[in-house]
């Protein structure tokens, strides 16, 4: 059979689901390197966003398990082990962007989790310093997670609001 060039093959592969692509890393070493190539990953993401495909709904199923419901074919629902499930850490979802989730565990550790590849990364912890002398106060923490096209990276913003008697402090940090 006539063979398709690299670019032509990528134009076909970008139409597939992440699940198919992970399996097809086994096709050959070339295919594996093409699928892992950041250029292709971006091509795949932008095509998925453009065509509204590869969308999943992530639902908590039981304590350490989630369900991933495929929007395109709800019949393909997969159970999904959460990161750190073996350590019995309960996690809470802080935000999502382009298929990535920002989650926080019981110990306040923050992770980025890609449920499609099931990979995760623990973010370095950043302490927030409070003005001295320490004031007894209640705190509210807010998170925002999104993609920054200028730095071409994902950013998680944490904002801690301390409520003093009459004073309010704001402090925000970006990863």
């Amino acid at each position: 059979m006539a063979t398709l060039s690299h670019d032509m093959t990528l134009d076909i592969l970008r139409c597939l689901s992440v699940n198919d692509l992970l399996r097809f890393k086994c096709v050959s070493k070339f295919w594996c390197s093409w699928i892992e190539d950041p250029y292709f990953i971006k091509l795949h993401l932008s095509y998925s966003l453009k065509t509204n495909t590869n969308r999943s709904l992530i639902v908590r199923y039981c304590k350490y398990q989630f369900l991933s419901v495929n929007y395109d074919s709800p019949k393909t629902t997969r159970s999904l082990k959460q990161p750190l499930s073996e350590q019995k850490k309960y996690i809470q979802i802080l935000g999502s962007c382009n298929g990535l989730l920002a989650v926080e565990d019981d110990d306040g550790r923050i992770l980025l989790w890609n449920p499609s590849t099931r990979k995760y990364q623990v973010l370095p912890s950043t302490e927030i310093e409070f003005p001295s002398p320490p004031i007894r106060c209640s705190r509210s923490t807010y998170y925002g997670f999104g993609y920054d096209p200028i730095s071409d990276d994902y950013k998680l913003i944490r904002m801690v609001q301390s409520h003093g008697n009459n004073d309010e402090y704001f402090h925000s940090e970006a990863k």
Binding site: M1, L4, L16, D20, W31
Partner: peptide, 24 residues
């Protein structure tokens, strides 16, 4: 159309489809 034919298919099927030799 090609993506629809290979989606959810086995690795062996895809190798045959594109005439790719397994080099692993």
């Amino acid at each position: 159309g090609v993506a629809d034919r290979i989606k959810n298919k086995s690795v062996e099927y895809v190798r045959r489809f594109f005439g790719i030799e397994n080099d692993y």
